[in-house]
């Protein structure tokens, strides 16, 4: 746990304890325990259906966990502590506030096609953070510059390439100045030649100290950028470690089989 300015150790950016999530009879997450330190980049890998995306969606509270706790910088999210009893679900307003502090980027970008690029960027800062329009535009320009798309400020999303759309989606999430960024297979829907431009933006963010939880199939990115890699299968974290050790000497047999298949 890194120390804060006062010398008191700061709590991790995200702490996940005993997280369970089911959809009907299908138990997707079967007890996840993870701590993500501030500024740390964690890549989550694993086969389809292993629960990686559900894990991110629970952290962002797009799905409400059935059991377990998630803390954002030490504060319980999604629920409220209750003296002498189990936590109760937080109000919608609290859930919205928490979501606004956790940026999420989706596989299919989910940009709003009826709004311009700038319109996409300033909507949430104005509606959620209640920023004046001029400040929101300034913020939007700053993050569009960061992802290298200032020339697309007035374009509509359907006119952009997949890579450009995903960079806009990253800028849109950054405009909320989140404490943590979640990336859910953000390059999976892109043509191979467009993957690099998105990964470059993510690398830049990582280098600037952004806390990131990244679900990815880009093993090269995980190896190069991640501080730690988690391998998930069947709703549990099977193995975790530094990228070099996990990729070169996986201990668990399931991890070995998965890596043998994807790195072939």
């Amino acid at each position: 746990m890194p120390p804060g300015q006062s010398g008191i150790p700061l709590p991790p950016a995200i702490t996940i304890e005993g997280l369970h999530k089911s959809f009907g009879r299908l138990e997707v997450l079967k007890g996840i325990d993870v701590a993500v330190d501030r500024g740390e980049v964690i890549c989550v890998i694993g086969p389809s259906g292993s629960g990686k995306s559900t894990l991110l969606r629970c952290v962002n509270l797009l799905e409400i966990p059935d059991r377990g706790r998630i803390y954002l910088e030490g504060a319980l999210v999604g629920f409220r502590e209750r003296a002498g009893g189990p936590p109760v679900r937080a109000s919608e307003r609290e859930l919205n506030r928490t979501r606004s502090e956790i940026g999420m980027v989706f596989q299919h970008f989910n940009l709003w096609p009826h709004k311009t690029v700038l319109g996409n960027l300033i909507e949430a800062p104005m509606r959620v953070r209640k920023l004046p329009r001029a400040s929101a535009i300034e913020l939007g320009h700053r993050y569009l510059r960061k992802v290298g798309l200032m020339d697309k400020v007035a374009a509509f999303p359907p006119t952009l390439s997949g890579g450009q759309q995903q960079r806009v989606a990253i800028a849109r999430a950054l405009c909320m100045q989140p404490k943590v960024m979640l990336f859910d297979e953000v390059t999976s829907a892109l043509d191979p030649e467009l993957v690099k431009e998105v990964l470059d933006v993510m690398k830049q963010l990582a280098a600037e100290g952004m806390t990131m939880l990244v679900v990815t199939h880009e093993m090269g990115f995980a190896r190069e950028v991640a501080d730690r890699v988690l391998f998930m299968d069947d709703g549990v974290v099977v193995e975790e470690g530094r990228p070099d050790s996990l990729f070169q000497q996986p201990v668990n047999e399931r991890t070995q089989r998965f890596l043998a298949a994807v790195l072939r």
Binding site: R99, S100, G103, H114, E123, A124, V128, M176
Partner: peptide, 24 residues
């Protein structure tokens, strides 16, 4: 995904519905 991205940014259901989903 349109509503989900709105909610993920902290917008309420009604903000997402009135500003993002219904206009489309």
């Amino acid at each position: 995904g349109q509503m989900e991205s709105a909610r993920s940014l902290g917008m309420s259901f009604w903000q997402g519905m009135l500003r993002i989903v219904l206009p489309q």
